[in-house]
């Protein structure tokens, strides 16, 4: 996993398959309103596409793909989007996650609910993707400290 696979079949398959898994994850996130799926499933699909590259390729390539230092900060931003949208609705006088009261100018209530749910799902997907990838990174990272 640190040094990559030597088989050309594994390298070619993971390189070809990973962008399509990522595209399907984006589709699942952005169509979460009216089809099965949503933020959690789409985020797990995005994470699995990144982990596929991490298993197959050597370390230089997958650090270019998604740097391990970005994991925790992007997850925090995702949680912040989720709770930010919820608390903005709470401050404007509704319940928690009451999308109809979000202060976006020039939109009717149906559009407000549409974009509110979209923001929530993008936040959940971002948090799930980065936290799953950083769990994988932390599992491999302790190898360097203990091996002598």
């Amino acid at each position: 996993m640190k040094h990559g696979s030597s088989s050309p079949i594994i390298l070619l398959l993971s390189r070809v398959l990973s962008p399509y898994i990522m595209l399907f994850g984006m589709y699942v996130i952005f169509h979460g309103h009216y089809s099965p799926g949503g933020g959690f499933q789409g985020g797990a699909l995005l994470a699995s596409s990144i982990i596929l590259i991490r298993i197959a390729m050597e370390e230089k390539v997958h650090q270019l793909h998604f740097n391990k230092d970005y994991g925790i900060p992007l997850g925090a931003i995702g949680v912040l989007i989720f709770f930010g949208v919820g608390f903005i609705a709470l401050i404007m006088g509704g319940y928690f996650l009451d999308y109809g009261l979000l202060p976006f100018p020039g939109m009717i209530t149906a559009e407000l609910r549409f974009y509110g749910i979209l923001l929530i799902e993008v936040g959940v997907g971002l948090a799930v993707m980065t936290i799953l990838v950083s769990i994988y990174d932390n599992l491999l990272e302790e190898d360097d400290d203990e091996s002598i």
Binding site: M1, P36, G37, G38, F40, Q41, A44, L45, A47, S48, I51, I55, L132, I135, Y136, L139, L140, D143
Partner: peptide, 26 residues
């Protein structure tokens, strides 16, 4: 239950298998 099946396929068959294999190699 399409939503539950989707979650089971992505998390149960994808992510957990990878994490278990990494732990076995360690």
């Amino acid at each position: 239950a399409i939503d539950v099946g989707f979650t089971e396929a992505v998390v149960g068959a994808g992510i957990t298998g990878v994490l278990y294999i990494v732990m076995i190699f360690r």
